[in-house]
Every structure is written in structure tokens, then in C-alpha cells.
Write a protein that binds this DNA or RNA. Structure first.
Lengths: 249, 249
DNA sequence: TCTCTGCGTCAAGACGGCATCAAGATCCTT
DNA sequence: AAGGATCTTGATGCCGTCTTGACGCAGAGA
């Protein structure tokens, strides 16, 4: 196992054919302190990563959506948004690994960030070598599974999780909050069966995992809004006794 | 996100199939200091985890192999084996998340452990809350399917346990819940014979281990759905008097 | 050859899960 | 405070799945 990520041929003169070289991992850095940005830009750049930067939470979310990075490095102390908010907003549509940087090293801060959906937490000041090692861990994880895209489309169905917009055959469809959460939950697992328990837990909360009735009602309304023939659904498929599945193609 | 792992479902009405109740996460702890073991035993136990312990590296590897845990917590300072050795040996056949505990907090130690294949590194003395949070992160990863791809294929038969999809000659085949559980149970032991008792116990519950009749009926329906010539099965083989076996290749 | 045992097949009925409708209850906006 | 949208809850019909029993068949042993 090489400790270095992707030694991009230390110094090739020719920008020529990137041929068989694996693509450089893409990282989005959300950090407002210019000093740290400069430092990480230099460090990560020299280790073969491609870096995109944002100085504020909102920008960072946009950047993460457009760049589809392999990893996001996030500073919790941002000027505009609460860092935890950034994590949660990101997790609404993406499973990209998030490494949190923070000047605060209190246990409570770490727990909050990790439970909000971060994958790792590094306190400032940090050791570069450790950060790089944790970055490699995150990349290993990212390589195992897809990081998810904020937009999804099958047939005539389009779901844009950034604009929070759903279309059928190009027509906007209005969904209620619960309908939307149910649909995006399925989108994030498109093609896979999602268990009734899991759906109930994530939409209605951990206390309602027995109310399978809710699912029937809401799958019904969703189908009426999204399917051409709700009785013979093309997108929202039932897996009897198990859960539901969103057709992937 | 609930901070608690998996509230162990207070009380099911039917004593029947172990089916839908989410099982308590299983953890293997490899640690030689009795004091820390006692402490973690109490802490993890009270948070709903099922803990198995080992006091040395070799034992730990055996334990990890037999218990098939969701997470391994590993102390680097073991009497018999070098901690890094344990990580590497484990990684030879398993992708289970590994959280390293260590009294040494040097950067070099962390980098070495993480690059050897560990997923996280916590220095002693550690804060319980943080360890629990990092444990939840590891479990999230495990649940997301980072851990190896349980897809199985022989001949024209394909079983994708992530998508819960079964194909024969590229054609989707619909299986009922019991059929699917029976098949995946065989898949997990592909090539080896699985006893009738075990099949009955794991699919119908511990109370039905005498109803070998069920097996005949369901092996029949499975063969009709999966085999080209159900009377001369290629995949689902009978081991008379013992059990059934899924052809491995 | 006969009998016993274990496996495979078929079919009928019981059972439970799913879809749908509709009526309260609740929340939010105006 | 009124109105509308949304969520919850109950009732009902239907369909697929599971269970259960009966029977045929093959192989082993007497």
C-alpha cells in the first residue's frame, strides 16, 4: 500500500497524454482563513491532488455540487453558515467523505460534527502528515462507493436536490415535505431496495418504525403525482415484505 | 441522526422469525489492558452493542474471523503481535472498519496505522463520547456497504445483495422474502453444505428447526425460478440427509 | 420383492401485506 | 381567527405469499 496518493509522475514536462495515469483526486476545501488555505493549497497540490476552494459555507456547497469532489475538507469556523449546517446540507444529497478541521477540540464539538454526518475530525493545529493520512483513508472509502449526485433522472423523472425541484416530462411537480424526503431518500439509494424500517426511521424518526401504514399512504400519493399509471408504477417499485425501490434506469 | 446506535426494539410480539428486528452491532475488541477492557465492556454494553474481546493479536484475528463483527477496535500495544501486523493480517481477508486505540500519539504512528489499513485512530487517554461518535461513523460506513461487495455470480446466476436483485442469464428474477433469504444464506456459504437445521433456524426462526418440509417446498420454487432444468439442478444442490449447497463455480 | 425413509411436486386454503379512499386532526399562512 | 394545505388515522377490498396436507418417486436395506 503506497503511502502517497497518486504520485503524478513527480515532474513530467509534457502535459501530454494523461494516458493510463489515474485521475488526480478532487478535493473541495471550505475554509475562510487565507493562511491555512495557502498552506493547504501548496501541500495538497504538491501531493498530486486537485484542489477547489471556497471561503464560505454557501460557496462551498455550490462548489461541492459542481465539482463532485472525492473528498470535502471543511473548516467549522465559517463566517456565514454554522459548520454543522454545512454538513447537514451537504448530506441531504451527497455521501462524499467530509473531513472537518476545527480550532475547537472539545469533545462535544467532535461528537456533534461526526453525528451530523462528518467522517473525520482533525483539530487545529494539525500535523500535515496525519491530515494526509486521514485524507487517504477518506479516499479509500470514496473509492468503494459512489459519492452520489445532487441531480437524478430516469425516464421522464428528474429530481434536482439543489433546487429542490421535481419534474415529470419537463413539468414541475409540487411535493409536500414528507413526499420530498421520501423521494430523495429513495433517490440516494436509486436502484437498491430501501427497507421499510429505514424509510420510516429516516423520514418519521426512530420512534415510528412500526407505522408501515404511512408508507403505503405516501407511496400512493407519490405515485399519483409521478407515475403515468399509478397502478402499474415504472419508478416507485414495491418490494413486498421488504421495502421500496426507485428504478435506476 | 440519532446518537444511539440501534435501539434494540423493546419487545416484538411474535416470538417468530428473527426477521425484521435490527440486530445489535457486533464489535470485536482487541486489547490487553484489563482496566480498559472492563471500562469499554461496560460502556459499549450499555449503549446497545454486542462485544467480543480478545487479549492478544492472534486471538483477536480468530475472534474477528468467527464473529464477523461490524467494527474492530484494536489497541496497538499488544503483547504478542505488532499492532500493524494485526491490521495487515486482518486486511488480507476483511474490509471491516478498524478503529485503532493507542497510547502513542505521535504523528508517525498514526500515519503508519492509517496507511496499513486502519480507518481511524484515537489516542489514549480518550474521551468516551468521541470514541462512541467515531464508532457510529464506522458503523455508518459498514452499513453503507463499504465492506466488500456482496455480489455473487456462478454461471448465469447473479445475486446482488446490495440491490437485492437476482438475475438469471441477465434477466431479473423476482423472489419472495423467504426465497430470497434462503438463497442469500446459501450464497454466504457458497460451495459449502449448509445443514437443514441451520437453514430452518435462520430463515424461519429457532422454533421451526424440525419443519424440513418447508425446505423441500422452497428449494422447489427456487429451482423453478433459477434453474434451467429444475429436475437436474446446477446451482442448488441437495446433500441428502445433510442439507443443501450452492455450487461455487 | 417389499418396506421404509427422505426428497420432490402439486394444489388448496389461510393469512398477512399492499393499495386506495375518506374522514378527522394539525399546522401554517393570511 | 379563518382558510387551506398537510399529515394522521381508520376502514375496506384485493392479491400474493405462506402454510399445510397428500401423493409419487427413488434408493437402501431386509
Amino acid at each position: 500500500m503506497s503511502p502517497e496518493p497518486v504520485p503524478p509522475e513527480p515532474s513530467r514536462k509534457t502535459p501530454g497524454p494523461p494516458a493510463s495515469a489515474p485521475p488526480a483526486p478532487v478535493i473541495v476545501l471550505i475554509e475562510d482563513e487565507p493562511q491555512i488555505r495557502r498552506f493547504l493549497r501548496a501541500t495538497l497540490g504538491s501531493h498530486g491532488y486537485r484542489l477547489y476552494e471556497a471561503g464560505a459555507g454557501e460557496d462551498g456547497l455550490v462548489e461541492a455540487a459542481s465539482r463532485q469532489p472525492d473528498v470535502v475538507i471543511l473548516d467549522l469556523g465559517l463566517p456565514d453558515l454554522d459548520g454543522l449546517q454545512v454538513i447537514r446540507r451537504l448530506r441531504e444529497w451527497s455521501t462524499v467523505p467530509i473531513i472537518v478541521l476545527s480550532a475547537r477540540g472539545q469533545e462535544g464539538d467532535k461528537v456533534a460534527a461526526l453525528d451530523a454526518g462528518a467522517d473525520d475530525y482533525v483539530s487545529k493545529p494539525f500535523a500535515v502528515g496525519e491530515l494526509l493520512a486521514r485524507l487517504r483513508v477518506a479516499l479509500r472509502h470514496a473509492a468503494a462507493g459512489d459519492s452520489g449526485s445532487p441531480t437524478f433522472a430516469v425516464g421522464g423523472l428528474r429530481v434536482d436536490q439543489i433546487k429542490r425541484q421535481v419534474q415529470v416530462e419537463g413539468q414541475d411537480v409540487h411535493l409536500t415535505p414528507i413526499e420530498y424526503r421520501l423521494l430523495t431518500l429513495l433517490v440516494r439509494h436509486a436502484g437498491r431496495v430501501v427497507g421499510q424500517r429505514q424509510l420510516l426511521k429516516e423520514v418519521w424518526g426512530p420512534g415510528q418504525t412500526e407505522q408501515t401504514h404511512y408508507l403505503r399512504v405516501y407511496m400512493g400519493t407519490l405515485r399519483r403525482k409521478l407515475e403515468k399509471d399509478p397502478a402499474r408504477p415504472r419508478y416507485l417499485l414495491t418490494e413486498p415484505g421488504v421495502g421500496y425501490r426507485l428504478a435506476a434506469e
